[in-house]
């Protein structure tokens, strides 16, 4: 893409453009970014309007439909491709006859809201720890860096799996109700606990290279407090690397959420979730492959879209990086 293409259309004088405006220009011309952004938007929307599907289909994600099952065949769905029909667009679940489309859209809701909340929590912790560790250096840095090292030394999936019942026990004994009201906060805690060091490490490196720059010195000479330097001077200059790190980390958060649920340490039935749909489909994968395929392929598409969008955002914000 030549520079002329990127130049603003107006000829009224030379206008300075901020780095973010330039990055936006680049993203605007990136077809991959648009398509992957569209896929993500689509999944977000179906999650948000999930209750609407319930109205259209006149059933709920948890109601049983024995009429769609063939009792003689071991309660498998009637019809091809897992019972796809005009009443059940994605077919029905074997044994129970629950509508898969509804479980799918409500599952998008659970999966995405847990993964995105965990991303947010991990990002906030990671950014704060990275900023403090990089800016103050010395003892603070040593302690915080050691902490990151120790968290990374834990076998993450195994530990996440193991710690879930314990944390649940602690939260329940402190008065939270049993079930998903406790389980979901526990999942968010666990996923973000293992996610923040990756973000903190990158932020720390960026801060170290930035804290000796002239504009920080200037602010310091003007008598700015250290908190002002960290959060008002340095942080605003870091949003690009932070955005890139977060964009590239979201897929792994989504994957972990589904994996935890798949292994049985996640969202509890009957609440729907893509990971639990996959888990529920395992006994039937050879007779009703469609049931496995729908949530599995959707997860693949979503993670792929986030990966591609992350790459695009990185390329737009950091033009030096070559693919």
């Amino acid at each position: 893409m030549s520079l002329d293409q990127l130049a603003p259309a107006s000829t009224a004088g030379v206008e300075g453009r901020s780095p973010s405006a330039m990055a936006w220009e680049r993203i605007k011309h990136d077809r991959t970014a648009w398509i992957s952004g569209g896929v993500i938007f689509f999944f977000l929307i179906i999650g948000i309007i999930a209750p609407l599907f319930q109205r259209i289909l006149h059933t709920s994600p948890n109601s049983f439909h024995p009429e769609a099952l063939d009792e003689a065949m071991g309660a498998m769905p009637i019809g091809h491709f897992g019972g796809i029909s005009s009443t059940h667009w994605f077919g029905v679940e074997p044994r129970t006859g629950r509508d898969i489309l509804l479980r799918f859209v409500f599952g998008a809701r659970t999966s995405l809201s847990i993964a995105l909340t965990a991303t947010l929590v991990a990002t906030v912790i990671g950014v704060v720890v990275g900023l403090l560790s990089g800016f103050f250096g010395g003892k603070i840095d040593q302690v915080l860096s050691r902490m990151m090292e120790i968290v990374l030394a834990f076998p993450s999936i195994l530990f996440a799996l193991a710690i879930t019942p314990v944390l649940e026990n602690v939260l329940e004994s402190s008065g939270l109700p049993k079930g998903n009201a406790t389980r979901i906060p526990v999942m968010i805690m666990v996923i973000s606990t293992f996610g923040w060091p990756y973000i903190a490490r990158i932020v720390r490196g960026q801060v170290i290279s930035m804290r000796e720059r002239e504009f920080v010195d200037a602010a310091r000479a003007l008598g700015a407090t250290r908190l002002h330097l960290v959060f008002k001077q340095i942080l605003p200059n870091l949003w690009a690397p932070i955005l890139v790190t977060v964009a590239l980390n979201i897929p792994s958060f989504i994957t972990q959420e589904a994996a935890l649920t798949f292994l049985g340490a996640g969202v509890i039935e009957p609440t729907s979730d893509w990971g639990s749909m996959l888990l529920a489909s395992v006994p039937f994968y050879s007779v009703d492959p469609m049931y496995t395929f729908i949530p599995g392929f959707a997860l693949f598409l979503l993670v792929l879209a986030f990966n591609l969008l992350g790459d695009s955002v990185r390329d737009a914000l950091d033009p030096k990086s070559s693919r």
């Binding site: 897929p251 994957t255 589904a258 994996a259 798949f262 996959l278 489909s281 395992v282 994968y285 496995t292 599995g296 392929f297 997860l299 693949f300 993670v303 792929l304 990966n307």
Partner: peptide, 11 residues
Amino acid sequence: ASLQIYFVALI
């Protein structure tokens, strides 16, 4: 890089 172990395993 975008696929899940359990999904690929089942396929």
